[in-house]
Design a protein around this nucleic acid. Structure first.
Lengths: 210, 210
DNA sequence: AAGAAAATAGCAAAAAATTGCTATCTTTTA
DNA sequence: TAAAAGATAGCAATTTTTTGCTATTTTCTT
């Protein structure tokens, strides 16, 4: 791969991260130039202008960010040579599946070290897809097992706890016996190996269940 | 200010951002050295080891990040010379008020450009507090109301509950008596008129305090 | 410098949650 | 169509949380 001929672009709506990350990329001295954008328009104009040049596009994506992923298709339409590398902080299986459905050339976790970026450029350079180990771990774990360890009924009841209801209050709302709620609660806590409702809720939130 | 004598630390649980940002800081050649940590323990050990050296600590903070803010107090206890600069992506008034209640030397938005970092180092160097314009705008718009009902210490302790810790566990982590934790908890619950920790957490989440 | 607010800490009683058991009925899956 | 998994429900023992009090020290505000 002759990357010195290629241009790198860092796109991130957090300007400070974009600037920082491109400082790192520049230091590699692998690209002809490194550019930073945090507005969609600037990016698309640049892609059109350099539609004949091989481009590596580092695209930040996080949950609350809408533009992120659809931009992949836009970029591909504007420049056939563009290589898309998504840099993401998401951690839930569902969100990752969503990213992978756009089939980016690379997917790097923000929890990775910089060596992941190097590794990614190597793999992607030979035309293969790179997915950083942190992320690969998340998806492979959730392919084998259930997405969530809880049943629908359990999650439903969990919502009540998340809204601050007690066992007694939840029983009232659901027209179930207090004992049933205790049982559900107990089962959920056992499944994720915790022993309090706050720990259970903390777990559920990490898994983006509630 | 003779910053060449100071050490810079970048703390962020997203290793990739931490690495990137420190590359940028290094390029300034203002500090004797620049270090990167993404584990609390590594940071505290370093602070203890260099307790006599002036240190600039760039601390990432975002909503889902538990360690962030309480770490300010820990850092100050371990090194009296530490200068805290929070780098944050939060945007809600309550969350910002929360950060400011820890009285950091600087608060930079991730939407800022790198010039904000330079400006911040200047201002902080003369002993004043720097708050990046993006963030100052948010608070000034809403400083009439929107005060969080909790003190900094209370919110700090609330974070532990949000992460599923019990009263006993929180007491251990904070090196406080169990009775003190009970008191803080009780006071917070009284302030928002609830009578369980789950209801309190539910309230805090609505207010984007945790 | 005085007063207010916050942080710290304690005890004991009452209330709620958690745990260790068992058991029936229904739905899903192999 | 069995077997497995889920939803329902109960009791008793133990642990944790919540509440009703008090009180000292530190920090902030005026």
């Amino acid at each position: 791969m002759k990357k010195k001929e290629a241009i790198a672009i860092v796109f991130d709506d957090h300007l400070l991260f974009a600037d920082s990350f491109s400082a790192l990329i520049e230091r590699l001295e692998l690209f002809r130039s490194v550019h930073t954008f945090c507005e969609e328009q600037e990016l698309t104009q640049f892609l059109i202008k350099h539609s004949g040049t091989p481009i590596y596009l580092f695209l930040d994506y996080y949950l609350k960010n809408q533009i992120g992923l659809p931009l992949i298709n836009v970029a591909r339409r504007l420049n056939k040579h563009v290589i898309i590398i998504v840099v993401s902080s998401v951690s839930s299986p569902a969100a990752i599946t969503n990213i992978l459905s756009y089939n980016p050339h690379g997917l790097i976790s923000k929890s990775s070290g910089f060596d992941a970026v190097l590794e990614c450029l190597n793999i992607v350079g030979r035309g293969e897809q790179y997915i950083s180990p942190e992320i690969a771990g998340i998806t492979s774990n959730s392919n084998l097992k259930n997405e969530t360890p809880f049943s629908a009924r359990e999650v439903e009841i969990l919502q009540h706890f998340a809204h601050g209801l007690s066992i007694a209050q939840t029983a009232e709302r659901t027209y179930l016996s207090k004992h049933t709620i205790v049982a559900h609660r107990r089962n959920m806590m056992a499944k994720v190996n915790v022993n309090s409702i706050t720990a259970l809720l903390s777990y559920a939130r990490k898994q983006e269940l509630i």
